[in-house]
Write a protein that binds this DNA or RNA. Structure first.
Lengths: 136, 136
DNA sequence: AGAAATTTGTCCGTATGTATC
DNA sequence: AGATACATACGGACAAATTTC
């Protein structure tokens, strides 16, 4: 079988599925997640892919892994699970709007470096952030 | 050869070496890092190990990778050392631009809550940040 | 414009090391 | 000591984005 990764890569899909289970409290916090071997069997994925998925959740602070013991679901901790929201960032050069140009003390239409961040939470766009700096 | 990882694992050693080069400005910021292939040859490590090392630096915000292009050294972050930066913030309701409307899945012109932050440093405007949320 | 080469991204299988039970 | 589970490392294959010719 080839390796077509249409849409989302598998490790992200798997992470999403596990995240959903944790959010839905199908896995009690503090208890152990299925072992990597079990997840390999369930998702029919290689160990590397499973570990990649777990790494995402670990970076989000959702889980914690202990060598030789297993992976546990971290207690909710803080309500502002900032990392649990997904941010998509992109930057590009774009002409300055009049408002931005005035603030940056340049001419409208001059190129500026724009950074755009889209914040999603449970699939829904919560916020759009656009920042502008003078281009080099 | 077996896979003994005495002391530090190799991916961390490699990351350390690259970090040192970046800190010492042996690699100009903005320029491309050696390709993964080149690093494999230099450190005689597999691609996975090299990528593991790069992932560490990426998480530290030291480097940035672009699909098909390569990995660049990020310009030194804002050391938020200079307390001399001043931020002026204001918020208001304003009609959504087409771009923002599309992202928020509303109609262009619909009112959104805008927050604007102007960052000044030694009197000069460095950055303009505009963020948009759906209005209540 | 289009084809080829380059470079990073994803995925798999296997083997071995190390920590915990 | 043995079994279990995570950690590190290798190698190969194909996909996708970018650059080069």
């Amino acid at each position: 079988m080839p390796t077509p990764h249409y849409g989302q890569p598998r490790y992200r899909v798997i992470a999403g599925e596990l995240r959903a289970r944790i959010d839905a409290c199908l896995i009690e916090s503090g208890s152990l997640l299925p072992t990597e071997g079990a997840l390999m069997a369930e998702f029919k994925a290689s160990r590397g892919t499973i570990r990649h998925a777990l790494a995402l959740l670990r970076d989000e602070g959702l889980i914690e892994t202990e060598h030789g013991r297993g992976t546990i679901v971290r207690p909710p901790q803080n309500l502002n699970r900032s990392a649990a929201s997904e941010m998509i960032r992109q930057s590009q050069k774009t002409p300055a709007t009049p408002t931005v140009a005035k603030l940056l003390e340049i001419k409208p239409g001059d190129l500026v470096e724009e950074e755009e961040i889209v914040v999603r939470q449970s699939g829904k766009v919560q916020k759009v952030i656009q920042s502008y700096r003078p281009a080099e």
